[in-house]
């Protein structure tokens, strides 16, 4: 009996390892290819040996598309947008849950609209609007249209609803102003949600592609995802080694954020949204 259980356990580990290998295979192959020079990518038959040209390849990917600047741009855009989104979401959710005001449900419905209007649904006029504001090829265009968030507002609303009434009453009796209550009581309680939302928004904004593709022109405004596209557009043979190097560089920041905030994400977001 014990033996069978042990076998079962080993089998389980093996199954998981195989799954992990399959899931990681594309990345593993990418890493391998990124260590070779161009001739090295053409070896036939393909194999899994590492090359010795990693430094050159990564350097080339970095300089060809000015990767440093692109990563900074992606970072500026992703961090600003995530932070603003979180602040706006907290403010809106706070208003909706702790105040009674005319037009509350209209405002709430409006926030919900963001869910219904992703980029492709309004792409041409939004572009026209950016032209009218003279925002084409600027950080404004990359950030402003994304500040509203339904997900975030819902998340905080749901969380705020679980805050006991007594806490609110006590605060009011103590003569605590709403903003102080928000700052001293609610936000300290919300760090898990804030962390989780930051992860979601950061990953989403970092990985955005269609809008930056259309709205940026100059190298100074480009984001990292566009850099990969630029590496892919060689007007010649695909330089897979360099493309993969660019892809791996671009993948690292959101991966780090995911690793750090993984636990918070599961506790603060998945447990609430998934139901």
């Amino acid at each position: 009996m014990a033996n069978r259980k042990k076998h079962k356990r080993i089998l389980l580990h093996i199954t998981i390892w195989i799954s992990i290998l399959i899931i990681c295979l594309p990345l593993i192959y990418a890493v391998i290819i990124s260590t070779r020079d161009l001739q090295g990518t053409f070896v036939s038959p393909p194999n899994l040996k590492f090359g010795s040209k990693a430094i050159e390849t990564y350097k080339k990917a970095w300089t060809t598309v000015n990767m440093g600047r692109l990563l900074i741009n992606s970072g500026i855009v992703a961090i600003t947008t995530s932070v603003v989104k979180i602040i706006l979401a907290i403010m809106a959710a706070f208003a909706v849950v702790f105040f009674d005001f005319r037009g509350k449900y209209v405002a709430f419905a409006a926030v919900f609209l963001t869910q219904l209007l992703p980029v492709p649904v309004k792409i041409v006029p939004t572009f026209e609007l950016m032209k009218a504001f003279n925002w084409v090829d600027s950080y404004y265009a990359l950030t402003f249209p994304y500040f509203a968030t339904a997900t975030g507002t819902f998340l905080f609303r749901q969380f705020f609803l679980t805050v006991p009434n007594d806490l609110v009453d006590a605060a009011r009796i103590d003569g605590c102003s709403p903003m102080t209550f928000l700052r001293k009581v609610l936000i300290p309680l919300s760090w898990n949600n804030i962390g989780a939302l930051f992860l979601v928004e950061f990953v989403y904004m970092w990985n955005r592609y269609l809008w930056p593709l259309i709205i940026t022109n100059s190298e100074e405004m480009r984001v990292a995802q566009i850099g990969i596209k630029m590496l892919m557009t060689t007007g010649s043979i695909n330089q897979w080694n360099i493309i993969m190097a660019g892809a791996i560089i671009t993948l690292i920041p959101p991966l780090i954020v995911l690793l750090i905030l993984q636990k918070t994400f599961i506790e603060g977001f998945v447990m609430r949204t998934g139901k």
Partner: peptide
């Protein structure tokens, strides 16, 4: 000098930029 993608993408970008009054 800025690399703006393929010929097609460069043309697209130029057209939209010209409409926006800000062509290269």
């Amino acid at each position: 000098a800025t690399f703006t993608g393929s010929y097609q993408e460069t043309l697209n970008k130029a057209i939209t930029a010209a409409q926006a009054g800000n062509p290269p």
